[in-house]
Amino acid sequence: MGILSILFLSMEKKSFTYEEIKQKLVNYCVYQDRCHAEVEQKMREFLLIDEAKEEIMLYLLKENYLNEERFTRSYIRGKFYIKHWGRNKIRMNLKQKQVPEKLINKCFDEIDDEDYRVAIKKMYDNYYAKHIDLNEYQRKIKTIKHIIGKGFEYDAIINSIEE
């Protein structure tokens, strides 16, 4: 068998039964919290009719495999405490995932205000210390720009470094 025929075989889509697709989507949600948009995107891979999509989506919601608030809270915690993103960057990424603004605002209580302040201060001190070749003003501006780039708010940065 030549390379072209192997490539062609690997490009063929395998067909699944409704129950197999449903189970694959359950596994997809169990592996990691997902938002509605991610599940809908995954469903597109299976070329389902609208009624089947709705039925599976309702099943995932009813059985609590899919929970937008749980996803949002988990996402916020992970992006702040592991990736060290600020609220602005987290909010922007959640909006790209079509999470409602109201839900985003409700779930931001996952970030402790003191932890947020300490994270900014630590980030500021670490980045500032790396740029000894610049004068005081340039170091401060460059450091603030870096932290803004991580999604932190200007006012929060200023408040944290002035303490």
Rank of each mutant, 00 (worst) to 15 (best):
Q96G: 08
I82V: 08
K62N: 15
V99S: 01
N88I: 11
E136W: 12
L61T: 12
D33T: 08
K83R: 15
M1W: 11
F8R: 08
Y28F: 05
Q41L: 01
N88M: 14
M57T: 07
P100F: 11
W85G: 14
F152S: 00
H146C: 06
F8G: 12
V99N: 03
E19P: 04
R91S: 15
I3W: 09
K122R: 07
K97F: 07
L94I: 10
R77K: 10
E69Y: 00
H36W: 09
E163R: 06
Y31F: 02
D115I: 01
D133H: 13
V26A: 00
Y28L: 00
S74A: 13
N135Q: 09
S160Y: 07
E38R: 05
G151K: 04
H146S: 08
I141R: 06
M43F: 06
I3C: 04
N105K: 11
D133A: 12
I132C: 11
M57H: 15
D115K: 02
L58C: 14
D112G: 14
W85V: 04
M43W: 05
E153V: 14
E20I: 01
F8V: 02
N126D: 12
K22R: 04
I148F: 00
E110W: 02
L48E: 11
A129S: 15
V99Q: 02
T17I: 14
E101C: 00
V99R: 00
K83W: 11
Y127F: 03
E110D: 13
G151H: 03
G149Q: 04
L25K: 01
K79A: 03
N64F: 08
K97N: 10
A156T: 07
K97H: 06
V39N: 01
N105P: 04
M57N: 10
Q41C: 06
K122D: 08
